[in-house]
Design a protein around this nucleic acid. Sequence first.
DNA 1: AGCACA
Length: 415
Amino acid sequence: MSTSGQPQFRYTQTPSKVLHLRNLPWECTEEELIELCKPFGKIVNTKCNVGANRNQAFVEFGDLNQAISMVSYYASSSEPAQVRGKTVYIQYSNRHEIVNNKSPGDVPGNVLLVTIEGVEAGTLALTLFTWDYTNPYLPVNPTAIEGIVQPAVGADGKRKELESNVLLASIENMQYAVTVDVLHTVFSAFGTVQKIAIFEKNGQTQALVQYPDVNTAAVAREALEGHCIYDGGYCKLHLSYSRHTDLNVKAYSDKSRDYTIPDISLLAAQQASALPAAQPVWQNPQAGPMYPGNDFTAPGAGPAQYPGGQVAPWDPSMQAGRPPFVSAPSTYPGQSYAASSVSSYASAPMPSSSSPHTPTSQIPSPGASMGLSPGVQANLRPGGVSSPSHLQQGVSPNVRPGGASPPGQPAYYGQ
DNA sequence: AGCACA
């Protein structure tokens, strides 16, 4: 009594910017909390649904006096504080700031809202929790760190990814090999692909795809998110934005590619090639969608697609029955060449006779210059030949033997 | 109706 002047409570009554509210309706939302408290001052933080019954909450005012005014008001008011008709008891909290560890989704406005599935959540966590902690997500592969997503919060408090010209693609259900070439083909539909890097993360294949600008990346992301590279739900893409804007990748490896490097010899070879630029197919609506619920339209209806009259990616006759999407699987399942070799994907349950992918005909351009691992390459291309006939047979490995530029080399630099 | 979580 003589000590505090507020004898009615046994808990500390030291004024605090943080108020403790109890007897709230269990379904009390943050909005209701704010409604109740904001007449007294600026609310800088809240935490609701606290306690076993989730009927407690904390509200932190910007200024101590504001908290005091609220407590004082209701201490002398004939009308108790109420939420949904329920009397709410308000006291100073015995803490002086709210440690906001709301679980994601609890409350809008939580800066640390983390709702990204799978591996991406891991990388996101890396940014959010910083590097002070021993982090199980620390990438084994240095490249993996590229995949960090920038968390951001919009005015409405909802999580919002910061856009980037670099997309992080997680490939789910990767029954079939996804090569640099495949990705290049897929992502080129939306604009020039500058760089690609493929890496493994937590047992999942991910890739970074760099466009020249954010807009292109955004379009690609929109169009490709959730879609599968191959029919049957294989190699499903999940796209987010990378934190990076310029990848540092090896120009030529089986896992990466830098298409911006002016490789004179390659360029020359490509220009010498009679083949038009390799371009993905699926912007061709009549080719028919192959993805469930696929409704994306030619992503570019616009300029990015066939600049400079680079039309007709390949022989139209090859398009018959070809899935509109990706092409160029360099290691197509069910093909004889894959049976004994193509690493883990070779065992994919793929009927060799009835490939739904009609892979052989969808190769936009043979000999896409990428480097598979030598072993795979050898198996893929027993003859080391890259000819149309091979493509028809489904052998069409996009393998460039010995680094040479085959006739079918896509004009990576040609656009 | 009585103080969260790293």
